[in-house]
Design a protein around this nucleic acid. Structure first.
Length: 940
RNA sequence: UGCAUGGUAGCUCAACUGGUAGAGCAUUCUGUUGAUAACGGAACGGUUGCAGGUUCGAUUCCUGCCUAUGCAACCA
């Protein structure tokens, strides 16, 4: 280096490192937040303010590690609560966990020899609890590492005795309101999990079934009811079609559509067959019968055939011909096999005709003795024997395999059956109208969510809340030992709740029924001895009542309704709905004011993430490579209302943006070194470009505020990024470097720039808080106290307010013109550079010819600052003629501006590197330009 | 199968009630070496999913299709 470099220049200086070193630094910062109790302090500071409560939808504790989708959800929630907090709201966040239920019980049982029947319920529950709580520890660590703040010391867990007790109390209220009943109904049943399932737990997948056509002969006693032409035929059969041969033992009827036309077809070798006219061809084809050999003897509507009796094909029992509107002519025969024990439609129509219910299958899917010769066979193993048996009896008309969509258990993925059993139901019918009204009191974001949940609630049937398992909250019902009558009294149920609150719900399995009743208790029906209901509640009930057991029960949450629920869009049929239904049932209103939903994470080509595709993204791996803030930035960068893409490419780009934000802050801090806000330049004295940036800054604040308020974080991301890159880094920062580095340290022009940098820093660090809190805190911790005030954590400061005094919309128009001129100048300079005429732009002078006078005037008004705008050594505006046309290095015309690039005049100043004709006037500094020598003198 | 929502540069997003498609990132070239594992400049890149229609003019409105995702149904 030459001696010239010894001239003092005011270079940036800061302790804020360029590299994030996130794996270490983020953890340090999180420790600082922990130790300083930042979350608690925030709440304390905001205690008197308006509340904004986001109620956490509890993640399920079946795994100790969170998925990327769970991370996304938690980060979104955290962005919201942090934003609301710095906006001044009282915004507590209590994390929750969903701890009961089948998947956990199954996971625990997987390692138990002998299965669920080999240990007592209390022992099993103990193991489930241990399993759930150990997973909680893992998930909690994952969540904290994301930088999520909240009351981690006191999360809510559905297995907590107090929550269980509140849940029981809600059950009691619903019982008192008459919304709970016990009924025999076919429900979706998983023979593998041995329990009933709710609608929300059913999913559809392809399944191959036996497709059979079966003859149901008309009883001799009913022949009189047949049409005249076939009265004397001795072999008349209704033909049904089914894909579930195993339900035939439960058959009690044959359903016809009342308005369809049915035909009586004489078929060689099969007697007379009855099917709908529309399906005759298909039926005969299935039976491989040549239609030409057949003869239609008669026809009748379904209505006319109602109440004819048939014989069950292989059981000595009647099967009644009935009418049902649900019968279609799409497939089958138009005659529908009806087994009220195995189908919802069948059940309803069966009740109408008083067919009764036969459901000869136990909880494991095995035929009971009611099934006669098929007893002790598992239902799915019975298909073939039944088909064979029908064949032997000559009742089988056709048989083939059919692959179709069929209901499966969403937990164990095995096929489900419909099975009529005694279950507890919440009567949605009882409060459907109120629920639908409540839906319209809620703001749904995006708005399509409203229709989604509305139509679901509108159509859903009663909610089956019984589960025949051990890991859950018991259904708190006692039955009179002799009468079998359920005791649905709220006072009794509340007494049970009190016991649970003291002892936990294990008490239900430990104590006799009498323990839960007052001594000498006598029920209305005279019962004094009781049995306990041994079913537990659907887990959706657990999480569904947290509006009561958490929001209303914890004083710091200040009661329902809360401001926001924020979950994946699948929760319209899950938690949003279970919460709504229970809340409407006991309070006649929704528990939330706004429901915000997000989509699902997919890979960069839009495919679902799955282990088999190998396109999964693990949150902890992203954090290890890039840090939590980059993952959070990802969440903020995408429009999460649709599918949310993630992948290596995206993360790498996000890491770039993170670095840009970081370096922007580093520039601010570095150039504010030694600045004291007391030295700030008054607004009127500011340089024009400085005023412009202050104005832009206000626009950014306003825009960001709008974007956050609308939960449109991806817009915030774009605005922030554009501001940092376009307005600051490539424009303002580049231009003011000259002033910052070479003007006298305390000169007005330097302080003018610093005044703006100071304002920008104040705003920027605050705007970073919700999305990249670690970065914001890191900046804060490296900001001198005289610049940031006494507050030790940036999480405790307030969101910036738009400073009206800085808003000057006219500056936009002014600078838009100058900036487009600057583009042309840059092109010209680049041309000169490409032809190796110049390197640095300071080696050039530019001469501009400007068509529009107003633009020329704007340029002229900048006077000395014009060179700063272009970062050249000289710049001149020539309105008429082509001054300096000779010897130019480049000549570019565009958008009304002609730019000539010429070699800079004079010599290069050793300090500011600009070329000048005023060099060496101060003998002490022979190689410095005038302004530099003045600056050096001033600073020495 | 029906309903809903989306389909704009390699990637993430723009374009107010129809008016010549814009940013950033990435890529390539390049300058600087006083934000330096940083910063600047330029270039490349789109018949806005496809096909029609309305209009002087459509990414924007209408119809159909394709495609992605979600939901419902596909029961017997």
């Amino acid at each position: 280096m030459s001696e010239k470099s010894s001239y003092s220049v005011n270079l940036p200086q800061t302790t804020f490192p360029m590299k994030a070193n996130s794996t270490v630094r983020e953890v340090e910062i999180q420790k600082f937040w922990d130790e300083q109790k930042i979350y608690e302090k925030n709440l304390e500071n905001r205690q008197a303010n308006t509340k904004f409560v986001l109620h956490d939808g509890p993640p399920y504790l079946s795994s100790s590690k969170i998925h990327i989708g769970t991370a996304l959800n938690k980060i979104l929630k955290d962005i919201v609560t942090k934003y609301k907090a710095i906006k001044g709201f009282y915004a507590p966040y209590v994390p929750g966990y969903d701890s009961h239920g089948l998947p956990i019980e199954n996971a625990v049982l997987k390692d138990v020899k002998g299965g669920r029947h080999s240990m007592s319920p209390v022992e099993l529950r103990k193991r489930c609890k241990e399993f759930a709580l150990s997973n909680l520890k893992g998930q909690e660590a994952n969540f904290k590492r994301l930088g999520v703040w909240g009351d981690w010391e006191h999360p809510y867990v559905t297995l907590d005795a107090r929550l269980e007790a509140e849940q029981i109390r809600v059950f009691g209220k619903m019982a008192a309101a008459g919304f709970l009943y016990k009924g025999l109904k076919p429900v979706s049943w998983c023979p593998n999990c041995e329990t009933a399932l709710a609608e929300a737990e059913v999913e559809y997948a392809d399944h191959t079934s036996d497709s059979i056509y079966v003859k149901f002969p008309v009883s001799p006693e009913s022949r009189a009811k047949l049409p005249e032409a076939v009265k004397n035929e001795d072999d008349v059969s209704f033909v049904i079609w089914t894909t579930t041969p195993w339900t035939l033992p439960a058959n009690l009827g044959v359903a016809l559509h009342p308005d369809f036309k049915y035909v009586f077809v004489k078929v060689p070798g099969h007697g007379v067959l009855v099917c709908s006219e529309a399906l005759k061809g298909a039926v005969l084809a299935a039976a491989s019968v040549d239609e030409a050999s057949t003869q239609v003897l008669a026809s009748a509507t379904g209505k006319e055939l109602e109440l004819i009796e048939c014989k069950h094909p292989f059981i000595d029992r009647k099967s009644l011909v009935i009418n049902g509107e649900y019968v279609t002519n799409d497939t089958g025969t138009g005659c529908v096999h009806t087994a009220p024990g195995h189908g919802p439609d069948d059940f309803i129509v069966g009740a109408k005709y008083k067919l009764g219910v036969v459901s000869p299958i136990d909880g494991r899917g095995i035929y009971t003795s009611e099934a006669g010769q098929f007893a002790n066979t598992r239902y799915d193993k019975a298909n073939q024997p039944i088909v064979d048996h029908l064949q032997e009896l000559g009742k089988l008309l056709a048989h083939s395999k059919l692959t179709h969509s069929y209901q499966h258990c969403w937990r164990c993925k095995k096929p489900l059956i419909y099975r009529a059993t005694e279950q507890w139901f919440a009567s949605v019918d009882g409060f459907r109208k109120q629920a639908l009204q409540a839906i319209d009191q809620v703001e749904w974001l995006p708005a399509s969510g409203r229709n989604r949940i509305f139509s679901m609630v509108e159509k859903r049937s009663d909610w089956c809340i019984s589960r025949q398992r051990s890991w859950g909250v018991p259904i708190p019902v006692l039955y009179g030992k002799k009468t079998g009558k359920p005791l649905l009294r709220e006072d009794v149920i509340n007494r049970i709740a009190d016991v649970f609150e003291r002892e936990g719900s294990d008490a239900w399995w430990i104590h006799d029924a009498s323990y839960f009743l007052q001594d000498g208790f006598t029920a209305d029906d005279g019962s004094t001895e009781f049995d306990k209901e041994m079913d537990i509640m659907d887990v959706w009930f657990d999480s569904g009542v947290t509006h009561a057991s958490v929001i209303d029960a914890r004083p710091e949450l200040r009661g329902t309704p809360c401001e926001l629920y924020l979950e994946g869009s699948d929760q319209h049929r899950g938690w949003f709905q279970s919460s709504l239904l229970t809340s409407v049932a006991v309070q006649n209103r929704a528990p939330y004011k706004t429901v915000l939903t997000h989509g699902f994470v997919v890979d960069e080509s839009g495919r679902k993430l799955s282990k088999s595709l190998g396109n999964g993204v693990e949150p902890d791996e992203v954090i290890k490579q890039y840090g939590a803030d980059v993952l959070r930035l990802w969440v903020a960068s995408v429009n999460y209302t649709d599918d949310i893409p993630i992948g290596k490419n995206m993360l790498a780009q996000l890491a770039e943006v993170y670095r840009k934000l970081r370096n922007t802050a580093r520039y601010l801090l570095g150039n504010l070194n030694g600045f004291d806000p007391a030295e700030a330049v008054s607004y009127d004295e500011l340089n024009e470009i400085d005023k412009y940036i202050l104005h832009r800054l206000q626009e950014v604040v306003k825009q960001v505020e709008v974007d956050f308020d609308r939960y449109e974080f991806f817009k915030y991301y774009q605005v922030l990024q554009n501001f940092c890159v376009v307005d600051l880094s490539s424009f303002y920062f580049d231009i003011i470097k000259d002033r910052l580095y070479t003007s006298a340290r305390k000169s007005v022009s330097r302080r003018s720039a610093q005044t703006v940098l100071y304002e920008v820093l104040q705003v920027l660090v605050r705007l970073l808080v919700p999305v990249t809190p670690h970065l914001a805190e890191d900046i804060w911790s490296h900001t001198p106290e005289n610049l940031r005030g006494k507050e030790t954590s940036v999480l405790l400061v307030d969101f910036p307010k738009v400073n009206e005094a800085y808003k000057k919309p006219e500056l936009d128009a002014f600078w838009d013109d100058l900036i487009s001129v600057r583009y042309v100048v840059n092109k010209a300079l680049e041309q000169a550079r490409a032809s190796r005429k110049i390197g640095s732009s300071l080696e050039a002078q530019v001469v501009l010819q400007v068509e529009k006078k107003e633009v020329a005037d704007k340029l002229l008004s900048l006077s000395d600052n014009l060179t700063g705008l272009f970062i050249t050594s000289q710049a001149a505006i020539s309105q008429n003629g082509a001054a300096g046309d000779n010897g130019h290095l480049a000549d570019v015309s565009e958008s009304g501006v002609r730019v000539l690039v010429l070699p800079a005049k004079g010599q290069k100043c050793a300090r500011c590197w600009k070329f000048s004709e005023k060099i060496g006037h101060n003998a002490n500094y022979a190689d410095l330009c005038d302004s530099c020598s003045e600056a050096v003198v001033a600073d020495s």
